[in-house]
Design a binder for these strands. Structure first.
Lengths: 187, 187
DNA sequence: TTCATAATGTGATCTACATCACTTTTTATT
DNA sequence: AATAAAAAGTGATGTAGATCACATTATGAA
């Protein structure tokens, strides 16, 4: 089966067939329909998810009931409520499907076991985490120094495909701007 | 010498004396005075820094000349321009001292060598990176859903010592709010 | 095809915060 | 102790973007 996972890992470290089989045996494949939840607020977070196909988002709903999007994840992206996942506490984010989606699920236990067994894999996850950290720093800087319009244009440049697949309302809540303002910006 | 580094690492993984000596041999100790630069924009980024004593900040200056603070780092914190450090490109952030500061410096080469030699250390850095990632997610959420006042109060609660050591002007630029507004909020 | 629901657009109004200009206070420096 | 420089406070005014209210256009389900 060509899931994209092997290619994804091998962008960072080469794997033998045996190694990849070993890695893969630690994942569970699951399918979800549009609007289904992978993680619900308040629930335990059992998995980190690698998106094989489809599109999901993670978001937080504040006291005022407003939804803020932490992350989108399409093919070859990882997503979870990492805070809750790593500390094995209840989710404060929800993760749900924008499209029908297939994911590889990795429990914390299996992740840690893989990392302990295979130094290479620990290396892989360290690299991934480093890149993620850098991406979040960029996002923080753009929240600090760019106007809504600038952030919008930047996102459009970086991920044009999002604009075909994600309703503007959700993009607005990712960018930290109201639906109405985003609508006026893009026209 | 009690630098705090060993205790810091041992919060995550135990080390033998020999192992710690090995680790330590990959670091260089440097001292800087208030206002000195550890990293200058446009220059190559040679090190990741572990702060032994003192206080530094990393910041980005935008086209309009406005400074935005990415991070503060006091005792036991790590700081660098990670984007530039990991990809060995020119700095887009500057790192400079708010107080006289002592740091342990780790080159990328030494970091990767340590990680390759000692699986434990790769584990350590993976864990650190994961925590950093989570912290940045929190900050993004608070930029998305909280008012300047709320962010201010939250920061005050989390790091009260910053308020004794850092001028309000800098806190403002960390929080993404103008000096004047912060002044009005805190009164 | 019809009806319902979600997504988008658009005007009118409001507000949190920025910016500018100036004063006062605090901190360094000789 | 005197002077300069940095930090902090504060009023007046401007503005990006929020909010509210409603109209229009897609999308989907029976």
């Amino acid at each position: 089966m060509n899931s994209g996972l092997r290619e994804h890992i091998e962008k960072i470290i080469p794997l033998t067939d045996v190694e990849f089989e070993h890695v893969l045996s630690h994942f569970i494949l699951k399918k979800f329909k549009k609007h289904q939840f992978l993680i619900q607020e308040g629930e335990p977070v059992t998995f980190d998810f690698f998106v094989v196909s489809g599109l999901v988002k993670s978001s937080h709903t504040d006291e005022a009931g407003k939804q803020h999007i932490m992350q989108f994840a399409m093919e070859d992206w990882w997503i979870s409520d990492y805070q809750a996942y790593f500390s094995q506490t209840a989710a404060t984010l929800m993760v749900d499907c924008i499209e029908d989606t297939e994911v590889f699920c990795l429990s914390l236990e299996n992740r840690e076991r893989l990392c302990a067994d295979l130094h290479k894999i620990e290396h892989f996850f360290r690299k991934k985490s480093n890149s993620g950290y850098i991406a979040l720093q960029q996002r923080i800087l753009s929240l600090l120094n760019s106007s809504a319009k600038e952030r919008y244009v930047k996102l459009l440049g970086q991920y044009p495909s999002l604009f075909q697949r994600v309703p503007k309302t959700l993009l607005a809540s990712y960018l930290g701007v109201s639906r109405e303002t985003l609508s006026r910006l893009s026209s």
